[in-house]
Simulated scan of single mutants.
Amino acid sequence: MSRPGLREMKREATAQALAEAAFDLAKARGLDGFVIDDVVERAGYSRRTFANHYSCKEAAVASVAYSGIDAAVSALEDVSSDVPLLDAIHAVLRLQLTTETLSRMREVIRLSREFPSLEPYVHHVQHRMRLEAEQRLRLVAADRYPPTYVSLLFGALYGMVSSALEGLVDVRLPGDTSSGPGSLEFDQFLDVAFKHLRSGF
């Protein structure tokens, strides 16, 4: 599968730097506590560069958390085709969905609840990443699995991760002291979820 060229990699790095600057400012000051000029000053770019990547500060903040999902799907490209798809996905999620990535995702969702103007941008990024991730998963699966299987599997995986990030299931990340006594560590949650995926509900 083709890898992005140097120009595209630089573009992605610039977009990520701007997104991280906006995200850090949102965490520190709230979404109403900074403007685009603060973002570009913090990231070391111009307003024109910002405009080449994002329509507003909300769009930049929303995009920061989902690079982890993108990285997880990219990692699947390097897994041997001899490994069953479900096993490969399980292993990749364990490695790629790090504490930092998951914490960012949770924080963006929390910010969107606190600042409603952010919510539609979060939904847009989630939708875009879901479509891209499913398309890339289809390429990884190639002709080894029927298209219906891949779609259903991806839908189940997406719902599984979303339930943990949105607080529908009490999943505790390392260093998280806010969860209740019956909460699951994220790795435990993955084991339970994949057990159901393999054997049914």
Rank of each mutant, 00 (worst) to 15 (best):
R106W: 04
A91E: 15
A59W: 05
G68V: 09
V83N: 05
S81K: 13
R110A: 15
D78N: 05
E58K: 06
A75S: 14
A62D: 01
I89G: 01
P84F: 02
V108L: 05
E77K: 08
H53G: 02
A62I: 08
R110E: 13
V79N: 03
E100G: 07
I89D: 01
V108Y: 10
V61P: 00
S67F: 14
V64E: 05
L95P: 00
G68K: 08
S67V: 15
H124T: 12
D78M: 05
E119I: 00
A75L: 12
S55F: 07
D78E: 14
A65P: 00
Q126Y: 02
M105L: 06
S112Y: 03
P120Q: 01
F115N: 05
F115K: 05
A75I: 06
E107Y: 00
V73H: 09
P120R: 02
S81E: 13
A60T: 03
H90R: 15
S74C: 02
H127G: 00
S67Y: 15
P116H: 02
P84E: 12
S117V: 12
A72D: 00
A59V: 07
T99M: 11
I89T: 11
E100F: 10
P120E: 07
H124I: 09
M105I: 09
L93M: 11
E107I: 03
K57G: 10
V92F: 02
V79L: 03
S103R: 14
S81I: 04
E107Q: 12
L118H: 02
H124F: 11
L97R: 02
I89L: 09
V108N: 01
S63V: 11
S103T: 15
V79F: 00
A72L: 09
R104K: 15
